[in-house]
Design a protein around this nucleic acid. Structure first.
Lengths: 108, 108
DNA sequence: ATCGTTTATCGTCGATATACGATGAATAAT
DNA sequence: ATTATTCATCGTATATCGACGATAAACGAT
């Protein structure tokens, strides 16, 4: 429970807090959560498809996608004509695990 | 997995996305995660104690605490002399559950 | 009554986030 | 070759965040 004071293994929790906070930040916008949902149930899709589904400008969607890609939660193949975005399910699962570990340790 | 298209129960996931995003946002700063850790292993403490533990101005700590309180993750008793802040472990557990549910559904 | 401590809030400032339109590059279709 | 489509990026405007110092209120101690 005391991740701050106990040295050793839990000290990594302390050191990883900025990275964990960055993970939270990547998910801290409703549009990005919706995009993630959309990607998750489609196995892959292009930017345009998301633009059509949501009421946002194409540049805005592209920015949100970039945030998710930079956070490592979404992979994409830049094919010029029709870039393919897809959820990185492994990365997402890892992040979920670290978030749960952290939050659970704060509930104990 | 398809929380966007399936009507009924999963539709609530869709409706709750802004609230979930707000939860992520409250945790999207390393200082707040550290404060949460600090509170979690102390059962309760005052603002000053956190100020002494971290290298931040008192007003900054107070602001971060306000964010956590507004998000419902921390409760506090405003006693003028020495306000007592404490983690709302139930709320934190609930949030963790909803985050896990959401992220897991995106990994399935 | 005065002083010191603690806290919340205000104002400010720089940095970042978010939205949009415009633009240029790449490519498919004609 | 021309047109249409898709995408990433740029520039811009606005809003919010995050940090700080200053300040006022509350209260214990002297």
């Amino acid at each position: 429970m005391n991740n701050l004071d106990i040295p050793g293994a839990p000290a990594r929790v302390q050191r990883d807090l900025p990275e964990l906070a960055a993970g939270f930040a990547a998910l801290a916008h409703p549009a990005r959560l919706r995009i993630l949902c959309h990607l998750a149930c489609r196995e892959a899709c292009c930017c345009r498809e998301i633009v059509d589904a949501f009421d946002l400008a194409q540049s805005t969607v592209s920015q949100h996608l970039k945030v998710l890609v930079d956070a490592g939660l979404v992979r994409y193949v830049p094919e010029n004509r029709r870039s393919r975005y897809m959820v990185d399910r492994d990365a997402l699962a890892r992040l979920e695990g670290r978030m749960s570990t952290f939050l659970s340790s704060c509930c104990a």
